[in-house]
């Protein structure tokens, strides 16, 4: 959601506009995430929004 906000210049929320995908395996309950090539590491933001807003600490910046 935060990702789509960045890509829409802070106007919209939409998973379809996001560079990241989250899915769940219903047999195990396991969550998987992926990031596609449209990710620009939140250029123009003070920090990547997915890192800033992930409440579970699942995202981090690897230098």
């Amino acid at each position: 959601m935060a990702c789509s906000f960045h890509h829409s210049e802070h106007r919209f929320f939409s998973p379809a506009l996001s560079s990241t995908r989250v899915s769940r395996d219903n047999d195990t309950g396991e969550i998987t995430m992926s990031i596609d090539s449209t990710c620009d590491a939140c250029s123009n933001e003070s920090a990547p929004l997915c890192v800033r807003y992930c409440a579970y600490g699942a995202r981090s910046v690897v230098k």
Binding site: S4, F5, R11, A16, L17
Partner: peptide
Amino acid sequence: GSKPIEIAKPEEFMEAVDEARRRV
């Protein structure tokens, strides 16, 4: 669905969301 939800006042909205998240 793949349609976007538009926010009327994004800056004010995110300020309020940030306040909520701080409380959390």
